[in-house]
């Protein structure tokens, strides 16, 4: 039950070695052990998208991946994005459009939006809505999020 394992991984550009309970999921490890509280937990069963973050270039659910599965991986969280220019234009667009209210869905929503924009996909409202349909937001009603992503793509700016 309390079996542990030591893992080494790169998180937001920093090398991290830690001993974690094998049952701990990645988002709990990031939040509770490393203080990276930007990633949120809304359901712990892979539906709400609040825990969405980047592992080895793919956007994944931090609640569905065990911390030990991230051994050797490169992880980027919302804090890592904020410390880099990557995503800055997207954050600006979210800000301008008020694409967040309480901000609890925002780290996950930004990750999904970034995935869409970086894939070079078009400013197609229906396609954007489809893409972010794994990210639940109770506050905004989603339209401002779609607007923000469209703005950014429309400007031809890089995310």
């Amino acid at each position: 039950m309390t079996q542990t394992q030591t893992i080494s991984l790169t998180i937001n550009g920093e090398a991290v070695t830690a001993t974690v309970p094998v049952r701990s999921n990645l988002v709990d490890f990031l939040r509770n052990d490393l203080g990276l509280t930007g990633s949120h937990v809304g359901c712990e069963h892979g539906v709400c998208g609040a825990c969405t973050l980047e592992v080895d270039g793919a956007m994944i659910r931090g609640c569905l991946m065990l911390a030990v599965q991230a051994d050797g991986a490169t992880v980027t969280t919302v804090e890592g994005l904020a410390d880099s220019p990557r995503g800055q234009a997207l954050r600006d667009a979210f800000h301008r459009r008020n694409a967040l209210q309480c901000g609890y869905c925002t780290p996950g929503m930004l990750a999904s939006a970034l995935e869409y924009v970086e894939a070079g996909r078009p400013a197609d409202r229906a396609a954007i809505r489809e893409h972010i349909s794994g990210n639940y937001c109770r506050c905004t009603g989603y339209q401002a999020v779609v607007d923000a992503i469209c703005d950014l793509i429309g400007q031809g700016a890089k995310a």
Binding site: L36, G38, V78, E79, A82, R91, L100, G103, T106, L110
Partner: peptide
């Protein structure tokens, strides 16, 4: 809102 966009909530 900036704070929340940067994971500083």
């Amino acid at each position: 809102a900036r704070r929340l966009l940067e994971g500083r909530g």
